[in-house]
């Protein structure tokens, strides 16, 4: 596998990382995601890492980079499903990923993206009926 598939769901992009990624694959994902965000004008990115057995400094940095680049492109990123053992290890390693939003699972991650997207609309749209959906 030389690419991780990116799924589009309306305004959001969804990525499920299921393989033990080598570093180049992670960098490819980072490129692909930033390109897709600007292509489709995505408002949010959800990255599901519940199958990942480790997150080391490289993957951690890649996730942080994705989140910052997405922010520059006006999209929110949420990382969901990090396993307890992975989280404990990542903290011990010294990475707390302060700039990254997290959620327990895909549902609550989606909920978060929807809320922030709606909030963004309310501020962004002049007087319209923006609170629907």
């Amino acid at each position: 596998m030389d690419r991780i598939p990116i799924l589009r769901m309306g305004n959001f992009l969804l990525v499920t990382i299921q393989v033990d990624m080598h570093d180049r694959l992670a960098l490819t994902l980072q490129d692909d995601l930033t390109n897709r965000i600007s292509e489709v004008g995505a408002r949010g990115v959800l990255i599901d890492i519940s199958s990942l057995e480790i997150v080391d400094s490289f993957i951690g940095r890649t996730l942080a980079n994705i989140a910052s680049m997405a922010r520059v492109l006006d999209a929110q990123t949420v990382v969901v499903g990090m396993q307890p053992a992975v989280a404990i290890t990542l903290v011990e390693l010294g990475m707390s990923l302060p700039g990254i939003r997290t959620a327990l699972n895909v549902e609550s991650g989606m909920e978060y993206l929807q809320e922030t997207a709606e909030a963004g609309m309310e501020i962004g749209v002049y007087g319209g009926d923006s609170t629907e959906d």
Binding site: E53, I54, V55, F58, A85, L90
Partner: peptide, 16 residues
């Protein structure tokens, strides 16, 4: 599982 994760993560860092 936690120990496995720690060892594998350390291995990953050092191998890189």
């Amino acid at each position: 599982l936690v120990d496995q994760t720690k060892i594998v993560t350390a291995a990953s860092e050092l191998a890189r």
